[in-house]
Design a protein around this nucleic acid. Sequence first.
DNA 1: GTGAAAGCGCTAACAC
DNA 2: GTGTTAGCGCTTTCAC
Lengths: 336, 336
Amino acid sequence: MAGKNLTIRDIAKLAGVSNASVSRALTGSCGISEKTRKHVLKICERERYTANSIARSLAVRKTRLLGCIVGSVDNPYMGQLACQIELYARHKGYNLILCNSTNKEEHEVQLMELLLGRQVDGIIITPTSRASYTALEHFLARIPVVVIGNTITNLRYNHVTVDNFKGTFLGAEYLVSLGHRSIAYVGYRSESYTHRLRAQGYQSVCETHGVKSLLIENKEAASSIERGYALAKELFSGPFPYTAIFAATDTTALGVMQAADEAGIAIPGDLSLIGFDNISYCALPRINLTTIEQPFSAIAASAVNMLIGTIESPQEGYAQMVLEPSLIKRGTCAAV
Amino acid sequence: MAGKNLTIRDIAKLAGVSNASVSRALTGSCGISEKTRKHVLKICERERYTANSIARSLAVRKTRLLGCIVGSVDNPYMGQLACQIELYARHKGYNLILCNSTNKEEHEVQLMELLLGRQVDGIIITPTSRASYTALEHFLARIPVVVIGNTITNLRYNHVTVDNFKGTFLGAEYLVSLGHRSIAYVGYRSESYTHRLRAQGYQSVCETHGVKSLLIENKEAASSIERGYALAKELFSGPFPYTAIFAATDTTALGVMQAADEAGIAIPGDLSLIGFDNISYCALPRINLTTIEQPFSAIAASAVNMLIGTIESPQEGYAQMVLEPSLIKRGTCAAV
DNA sequence: GTGAAAGCGCTAACAC
DNA sequence: GTGTTAGCGCTTTCAC
């Protein structure tokens, strides 16, 4: 806060009107003649006056500031999401205080507290773990929140998510259409609802088509290239009678790819591989991963709209928005 | 802003003291007995009271809010940087309003204006282009700013950057130590000071060791995989008597890699390749790009420290901080 | 050590 | 249509 800035009174004096008129001109409210509004605005322009939004926020008890808690924006998934959220929120007249929880629930709680103190009008959060939700619980009564992604069953808060079942369904159907009769699913995390839905989509297709299936579980708390690699390495160490792998996430797929490369398994020659999320890594040369896309900008827009909606007209209950995923065909899947 | 929150007066009433005492207890200022401070703090705890930082900001005329303008956090370079900045700033008691300029100068100006109105205490910006600086000019007198990265000569503002000359110097020396006697440099952008320094580091090594060199220029306004690809494709279409390529940026290197793959040029068998930045893409399986690392967290910490420094004790002149890059050996360079 | 009161810069009744 | 004034919730002199 620069300090030596002009105030509304200074402008009022310069314009020869009252500060109320200046305020009216600035906020675009009625009860002021077009003539004086023009006049005041001109003076503001000339003096390079920018209204102090802190004072305004205090007066109207709204900051038009949104809190955004993500795991970590250096993760490509979060980066893509956060970028879209910021852009869309700004488009709607809101700015973002961005916070990285570094995937720690205790940080999430601290951050909610902090954002509350900052008087943000609402919060968008991508929870780290199941425990995040119990922490969230405390804040829901105090401030509008929307959750992106849903890792628990029966989430009774505002949230937006992709249709995870549909995503793996789409992908598995694609593999089947390519002639695959045996598809393994790698990286399933049983505590995650997202993962359960994804596994169900895959399994449903396998059942319908009588495709041989296999669910390889990831017992760790998160998906990563390293986990995908470890899981696949184990898998490839014995006989592996599958022609395709559906990875629970893109990062998992990347790990699988690495293990396959090391094991001399050609992709897509010997093995088709498909991921989920369409993070920016997928489109890279040499990677070129076929995957299921999360519509980041639609997710961002829906989340922001939902949040602003509940900010501007608070209501009991909650909303849920499920967006369509789509298949992105690249180079890692081939006909058998 | 929730609205129905408790105020300092409510706490004062509950604690049986004046609001001044509550304020003193909360801000940790002196002039209050340890006894009443404890008492007040206990009440605050019990009532889950969080001070309204908007009101505080207005009173003290400081927001402890930093503006951060980046090209776009969905870009891995920006994402890594922004994440570190946020983390470090928070550690120092500041929060971040993050804005993506989408690499447009006119947006940068609008965002500076917006952040000024938001009363942020200072701004960290990674300018998009040379024109950004002339836009910045207007704001320097009004608010503390630090620039990350330096794309113009004689930048007379606070800024922190990596030692670009040193970076390519290190990389080129490494290639020479591997026995390379002909190294091409791809993706040079002559209008960028950063690029000029990088090219100089490379050329200096080539001259000292009598290494055959070649500077391939990128005439576009930015580096990208696509540009690297186009440049390299052109390069590989004729005779190419070089055993190594130094790419001006990692993204450029990725494009070169793609072109080499298509041309049947083995990396590092036929051609060694080195990039610059160490964005997250480099460590991916199949990519495994040897590169020069920008110390993201050191850059972030320096920038934040520099900014907070000038916020808390404003002074004429400007500071500059040049950080050490380092060589990250991965799989794309080999002895000839 | 504690409390009363005057702002911080703005908005929004309420008069005129 | 315009101006006056009382807050918004906090900090900070200044008395006591």
